[in-house]
Design a protein around this nucleic acid. Structure first.
Lengths: 203, 203
DNA sequence: ACATCATATGTACAAGCGTACACAACGATG
DNA sequence: CATCGTTGTGTACGCTTGTACATATGATGT
């Protein structure tokens, strides 16, 4: 069989990484093991331990892959935003996609977030993802502070939709975003635009 | 020694549960095992398998304990709210506590959320927690829709604070909340007050 | 052609796991 | 006091895991 003599196949590392992502998607991070990834990639066990220094290494590679996919989709959305339509509506469009066609990708991304809470090698990936999203969103909202709030609202809402089975209501999301975006740009907070940070406000 | 002859100790089940919470707090859900809980509770292994039908049972009991503690704190906050002060400020007070003195409790609660995403026996606990928080918050905001948005913003912001090491800025939280609460109560959404739900809006 | 080296593979091992189960100790009931 | 059922305890079994390692293979440079 082809599988038996598959030797010297180029970028096997990548194939194992993608198999690891598949394992996580289907059975969760806790089910990721050298053996599970090897089986999913149809390679022998020794192959995974050769290409990855340890299990953490494999997990990190897989979560980076997940993150890249998520950010690519967000970037694509950002490029497709129509500046003539209300931002709240455009952002709602992204949320709708995240909960429907791209739901499994979304579940993966939140799995990454939670892993980051515990695992110090994963945390920078999750934190970097947040920063990158803020930077991209920054183009469609008045300031960074607002961008962070919007991301927070999105994360919280998607978490609610994923946890409770509550049906997705676009108006709900749109309305919340509209309120968040309606405030005066530098209303109560010295917004950290492109200048220097404020001199520390209140404890 | 006392430990050797400790027999017939009342509510041993509870002590094991609390030990399990301690294990989760210190080493994460993935580190919870019958043996780890037994060691933390200073009881023999057989004791945990006697009091809990399976590992899922132990995990569920521990996460319920976590959830009870979290909700008790939120309830205490809700009761202590000064109606004469701006709600945004009072809610910010809760967030501040969650990230400082009660931070480890907060980390536990989010661990519960993430477990709920994957584990179907945990999900109802997490979902119920969200509903309970909405119900409690309902007393301080105009409608349920707003309450859900506020909870979402809080969850998203706390997640950001926990993941990135960004220092906590009360004004940031307060300002976002103020914007969310400033909108017209029934602005763009038929709010699901105490009446009947709207006849389904959009796909 | 030959040597060299990165890559590929199968196997082995120690550790940790959930769970089952036989037995010991105790409180309650008669 | 005898009996019984609940509670507590120690141990053992089968399984999965991460990792190490000896070996095999094919590409590469000379």
């Amino acid at each position: 069989m082809a599988a038996a003599t598959r030797r010297h196949d180029p970028d096997r590392r990548r194939r194992i990484t993608e198999a690891a992502v598949r394992v996580i998607r289907e059975r969760g991070i806790s089910a990721l093991s050298h053996r599970a990834a090897a089986a999913a990639a149809d390679v022998p066990l020794g192959s995974t331990t050769y290409h990855f220094a340890g299990l953490d290494d494999l997990l990190l590679a897989a979560l980076r892959e997940v993150n890249d996919g998520w950010l690519a989709r967000f970037r694509a959305w950002s490029d497709s935003v129509d500046p003539d339509r209300p931002p709240a509506e455009e952002i709602t469009r992204f949320v709708a996609g995240s909960l429907a066609a791209e739901r499994s990708r979304t579940e993966l991304e939140y799995e990454l977030y939670f892993a980051g809470l515990r695992n110090p090698v994963v945390r920078p990936v999750a934190a970097g993802c947040l920063d990158e999203m803020v930077a991209l969103l920054r183009r469609h909202v008045p300031d960074e502070h607002t961008a962070r709030a919007v991301i927070a609202l999105l994360d919280g809402l998607m978490l609610q939709y994923l946890l409770t089975g509550r049906p997705f209501r676009p108006e709900e999301v749109r309305d919340g975003l509209a309120r968040l975006l309606s405030g005066s740009p530098s209303g109560g907070l010295p917004h950290s635009g492109t200048g220097s940070p404020p001199p520390a406000a209140a404890g």
